[in-house]
Design a protein around this nucleic acid. Structure first.
Length: 312
DNA sequence: GTCCATGTTCTTTA
DNA sequence: CTAAAGAACATGGA
């Protein structure tokens, strides 16, 4: 399910409703989703109060009042949902946290269930510990793309000759991108996915950096992409799948030039791109630097769009 | 039965 | 040795 926009949407739909709640009951129905194995997750969560829910890359990080933290990774098919305590427990539900508010006394608090369900079990729950004990969440994870500077991106991509598509999927280089948003970002940046990462010039780096941000922000605005499993914490699907320009669109016309979208495999991952818009040489080498008028809205990058007449 | 899937990690290869 | 491609993980749907 989950790349940065989907994870961010889950965090957004979760945060306002679980902060300050106490974990009254912990039910771990499948303990091989917990890492490290044998850590006393149930005991460590029991009766703790949730202080914050944030995102780091594709991880959903929970901070507790006692200073400890853990994170949930949704893997490929994971769902993290808030449900009434009496709703039926579906197959492949691995963790249930019953959340209560202690502030309201008297009134019956039937509690709210935070449930983690993941049929494929590529996801799971990772115990981090407390910062005071020197336990960080950032082990070997690359920088956040939404606040990344072009110079940082250039430095990281310079050290590998891999295809840029593969590099973008490498969470140690840059955090949060997956197969959908790597393809969509490369299209928006007009870069061929097989371009060697270390061969990008400053202009292409700037374009890519901007394309990644624009693509991710748009996807977050549309609450992520729901292809198969993904829903937010309220069980609602996202809408960005309808706005994909190349991902899973092989054979369909490129929204900019009508050339059929191509599909190739790069390091085992299906990769979709426009063979005409995304050139291996880079757009700078082509004679035409402007775009057909009907295509302008496709390219979020101002460098590639004829600028409107400047104000004044 | 086959192939494929929004991800990560371990193993093998060059 | 390192870098990068491949296989493996587990399940369900087409």
């Amino acid at each position: 399910m989950p790349e940065l926009p989907e994870v961010q949407t889950v965090v957004n739909t979760l945060a306002g409703r679980i902060l300050g709640r106490r974990i009254a009951t912990v039910r771990l129905l499948c303990d091989d989703i917990v890492d490290p194995p044998g850590c006393d997750l149930v005991g460590r969560l029991q009766n703790r109060i949730i202080r914050a829910v944030t995102r780091r890359g594709k991880r959903i990080v929970f901070s507790l009042h006692d200073g400890n933290r853990f994170y949930i990774h949704l893997g490929m098919s994971g769902r993290l949902t808030l449900e009434p305590a009496d709703s039926p427990i579906l197959k492949h539900t691995h963790l249930i946290l019953k959340l209560v508010t202690d502030a309201t006394h008297g009134q019956s608090d039937d509690g709210l269930h935070l449930r983690f369900r993941d049929p494929r079990r590529f996801g799971g729950v990772w115990w981090i510990g407390s910062e005071a004990d020197g336990n960080g969440c950032d082990d070997r994870i690359g920088p956040e793309p939404l606040t990344l500077h072009p110079a940082q991106l250039a430095k990281r991509l310079a050290r590998t000759r891999r295809a840029i598509k593969s590099a973008l999927l490498d969470q140690t280089l840059i955090a949060g991108l997956g197969n959908i948003y790597a393809d969509e970002s490369l299209f928006a940046a007009r870069l061929h996915p097989l371009t060697p990462a270390s061969s990008l010039d400053d202009q292409q780096i700037a374009r890519l950096n901007r394309a990644i941000k624009t693509t991710l922000r748009r996807a977050i605005r549309h609450r992520g992409s729901s292809l198969r499993d993904y829903v937010d914490a309220d069980g609602l699907a996202g809408g960005f799948q309808n706005l994909h320009r190349v991902y899973d669109r092989a054979g369909q016309p490129c929204p900019a030039c009508r050339t059929p979208i191509a599909r190739i495999v790069i390091s085992g991952r299906s990769t979709c791109f426009c063979p005409k818009c995304q050139t291996l040489q880079g757009a700078r080498d082509t004679k035409t630097k402007s775009l057909p008028g009907h295509a302008r809205h496709i390219w979020p990058d101002r460098d590639q769009c004829p600028k409107p007449t400047p104000a004044r």
